[in-house]
Design a protein around this nucleic acid. Structure first.
Lengths: 209, 209
DNA sequence: TAAACCATCCCCCACTTGGGGTAAAAATCA
DNA sequence: TGATTTTTACCCCAAGTGGGGGATGGTTTA
């Protein structure tokens, strides 16, 4: 079974180049190459590609918007951005919109094919510089304040669920423990983090993550 | 000029294995192999490695703590975590502490060497599954929800204070309004943001920022 | 002008949470 | 092995919160 790939790229030269690269791989099949996000969206449901190569700069709808749209009905489809932009702003917006990978256009053909295979297998292919920028984002948001450091794994688990807005009952149900036990955890967490309420703990927790 | 590499790994077998792999690379030189974070820290200033391979589970100080310590005096040193742990929790803590890469221990030798070169050149080597988990983090914090958009200025003000962990009384005092009024705002905010509680609203609010 | 929205305040009631405990089984460490 | 930490669970009580109302002016807008 071949991996089905779709290309969305407005520059005709580059688009045909991508299609040709795909043709050289015996384990892949190009099921469509479009010049705009709009035209890609009208065909994507029928074609059901496994992986989509998406340019960011497109006429009309941007590649990032297109990713958002695709994600609404195909949460598991693999989408790799292929673009010249290396600014953190676009990278993060694309990733937040739901992209699974991010390659710069200068990537050599074999790296492109390897990236498609990687994405298909559940990886997240990124060009070297892109990966570094992503990692740097974590350095920025910094060493998680030591306040949350000495929480036990279970306590951290509770704190995470708390951060998602669940009440004790629900957390208890999810973790298969009683809500009273959850209360105990929260009390311990509040003590360890030197805050008065679960809400402050969540605020502190999120600002550190 | 060879790339200077240091190894921090408590398991003797694996440590010597890593040293041997490094010995096979003509462009690298192992300048130290330590069994604990503490001993590594006492020698790292003299050895001045370009890249450090760091285990997470270590006796005494954890690998993550060790990374934090190294970052205090060597912000530019490349540190690659080499570990069996693939849980998001540890990955993010390590990255936040300042790690530049994250490999699982099952990585083959040539991938390890390539990762060291990648890190040295300014990349951020990650095993396939690790990269996916990092990317998923961005999917989680999602496309900045616009749900908080149609809040009135006053409501936003209340939401901000709420996010800092204040209770209604305190917010009322700060804004010179009654706590009952604050309650009304929070109720409206919850309605507008389609959530059940102030905590969910805060979670949504912060994750969108 | 009427409708819509905003900011402000109040009531009731059931549920949830914070703060204070106690305690035992399980896992981990020394 | 013994000591410590982690995980689990329960108690009481006072305070805070969520959900449902209603009410008064003021401003904007259709």
């Amino acid at each position: 079974m071949k991996t089905l790939v779709m290309v969305v790229e407005d520059d005709r030269g580059l688009r045909e180049q991508l299609v040709q690269i795909l043709a050289t791989a015996s384990d892949m099949e190009c099921v469509g190459a479009f010049a705009s996000g709009e035209s890609a969206l009208t065909h994507i449901s029928k074609k059901q590609p496994d992986v989509v190569l998406m340019d960011i700069r497109l006429p009309g709808m941007s590649g990032i918007e297109c990713v958002s749209e695709i994600r609404k009905f195909a949460p598991a489809m693999q989408i790799i951005m292929v673009t010249i932009y290396e600014d953190s702003e676009r990278i993060f917006r694309a990733l937040k919109a739901g992209a699974n990978g991010y390659l710069v256009k200068s990537s050599p053909p074999d790296q492109l094919l390897e990236a498609i295979r990687d994405a298909y297998k559940g990886g997240a292919p990124m060009s070297s510089h892109i990966a570094r920028k992503v990692i740097q984002h974590f350095h920025m948001i910094g060493p998680s304040l030591k306040e949350a450091d000495n929480l036990s794994p279970r306590e951290r688990e509770v704190l995470d669920l708390l951060s998602l807005g669940f009440i004790y009952k629900e957390i208890g149900a999810k973790l298969n423990i009683g809500s009273e036990t959850v209360r105990t955890y929260v009390k311990n967490i509040c003590q360890k983090m030197h805050v008065r309420s679960r809400l402050e703990a969540v605020a502190k927790h999120r600002s550190a993550s």
